[in-house]
């Protein structure tokens, strides 16, 4: 069988479905993050779901196909930004003359989307950190995939010579 031009990609069906689902998974992830304080779920769970979108692309397009589209440097910055946001939201309590992490913002009616003060904001911060963190993690770990393919190719060429 002739090797295709891009051996790291899966078949066209997988790639198309991955493209179609990418946005949907992102939206579902965001939904889980934003509704973290009133439904099961929250920042971590939603963040992992969001990162799954990137992981799916990685599976369909391979390491070489994804690193050109997803900038890991930017994702790393996002991760730090999420942590700083979480830290700052904790500090709001101190500034409002209570203690660190105190919930001093508008509480609203329990069960509604805009309620529970800083908790949904913290969920968003955690979601940001987890989504970008897990995505970066998997991208970096899949460098191994890229290397092993490179070695295999080099070995094969060496054998042919």
């Amino acid at each position: 069988m002739k090797m295709s031009e891009k051996p790291y990609e899966l078949s066209v069906i997988v790639r198309t479905v991955a493209r179609l689902l990418f946005g949907l998974i992102l939206i579902f992830g965001f939904y889980v993050i934003v509704h973290g304080h009133i439904t099961p779920g929250g920042g971590f769970q939603g963040g992992v779901v969001t990162a799954l979108a990137v992981i799916m692309l990685l599976a369909a397009y391979g390491y070489e196909g994804v690193v050109t589209e997803v900038r890991e440097k930017i994702l790393e910055r996002f991760e730090s930004l999420g942590a700083i946001m979480f830290w700052t939201l904790g500090l709001v309590g101190v500034i409002a003359t209570a203690t660190y992490f105190a919930d001093v913002l508008y509480k609203g009616t329990p069960g509604e989307l805009i309620s529970a003060g800083t908790i949904p904001l913290m969920n968003i911060a955690v979601g940001m950190k987890v989504a970008s963190g897990v995505a970066v993690l998997v991208i970096i770990m899949s460098i191994g995939m890229y290397y092993s393919r490179k070695y295999q190719k080099a070995e094969k060429e060496g054998a042919e010579e």
């Binding site: 730090s80 942590a83 700083i84 830290w87 904790g90 500090l91 101190v94 203690t99 660190y100």
Partner: peptide, 25 residues
């Protein structure tokens, strides 16, 4: 905001903030 009142948590969160702001700096 009295700094001595929050001194215990400041010991923990100061290096925490430093850690995550270093990539930007």
């Amino acid at each position: 905001m009295n700094i001595m009142e929050h001194i215990a948590i400041l010991v923990v969160i100061t290096p925490l903030f430093g850690a995550f702001s270093t990539p930007f700096v």
